[in-house]
Amino acid sequence: MLKPKHTPVVFALLMSGTMAGIVSAVVVIINTGLDAGTPQRWLSSYVIAWPVAFVSLYSLKDKVTKVAEKLTNPPS
């Protein structure tokens, strides 16, 4: 089992993997249609999208969290 200190990395891996999978599937289907070659096209897209999504999510998480907090917390 991983240690709690690894939670941010595990979260980023899981979230980016999920989102990259969904978004790449939608984009592939919209751009090329749904046929027998879709899974291969999706996988080719996914192996590029996941690392990009992971690096983006992990590197921007603190900045995005601050913006979200400003948008959701009333001024003091």
Rank of each mutant, 00 (worst) to 15 (best):
F54M: 06
K5D: 10
L34Q: 01
K3F: 10
W42Y: 08
L60S: 13
L13F: 08
V47K: 11
V52E: 01
G17S: 12
T65S: 11
V27G: 00
P75A: 10
K5V: 06
Q40S: 07
G21Q: 13
K63Y: 00
K66M: 10
S16E: 02
S44A: 13
T32L: 11
L71H: 05
K3S: 06
G37Q: 08
Y58E: 04
M15C: 05
A36F: 12
P4E: 03
L71F: 08
I30W: 10
S45E: 11
S44T: 06
D62G: 00
W50Q: 00
V28L: 03
K63P: 00
Q40I: 03
D35Q: 04
I48P: 01
V55S: 04
V55F: 15
P4H: 09
D35F: 14
A25Y: 14
L60G: 02
K5G: 01
K70N: 07
T18W: 14
P39S: 09
S45W: 14
S59D: 07
F11D: 01
Y58H: 13
N31M: 13
V28M: 06
A36E: 06
V52D: 00
F54K: 08
V67Y: 09
A12R: 05
T18K: 10
M19Y: 01
V64T: 14
L34S: 04
V47C: 09
K66A: 12
K61C: 05
K61M: 15
M19S: 05
A20N: 06
L71R: 08
M15K: 12
N73D: 00
P8A: 09
G33W: 10
S76W: 00
V10D: 04
A49E: 01
L2I: 05
I29L: 14
A12L: 01
S59Q: 14
P8W: 06
S45G: 11
V64M: 12
T65Y: 03
Y46N: 01
T18L: 15
K70D: 03
K70Q: 13
S44I: 05
V23A: 15
S44Q: 01
S45H: 12
P74G: 11
P39D: 02
N73G: 02
V28E: 07
K3Q: 08
W42M: 01
L2R: 04
G37F: 12
S24V: 09
L2N: 05
I22M: 15
K5Y: 03
I29W: 09
K61W: 10
Y46G: 02
L13H: 02
W50L: 02
L14D: 08
Y58C: 04
Y46W: 13
S56I: 05
K3L: 06
P8R: 03
E69L: 07
S56D: 05
L71Q: 07
V64R: 11
Q40C: 03
T7Q: 06
V67K: 15
L60M: 14
K63V: 05
P75D: 13
L34G: 03
K5I: 06
K70G: 02
D62Q: 11
I29G: 04
I30T: 10
L13A: 03
M1H: 09
T18F: 15
V10A: 07
K61L: 08
V26I: 12
D35T: 10
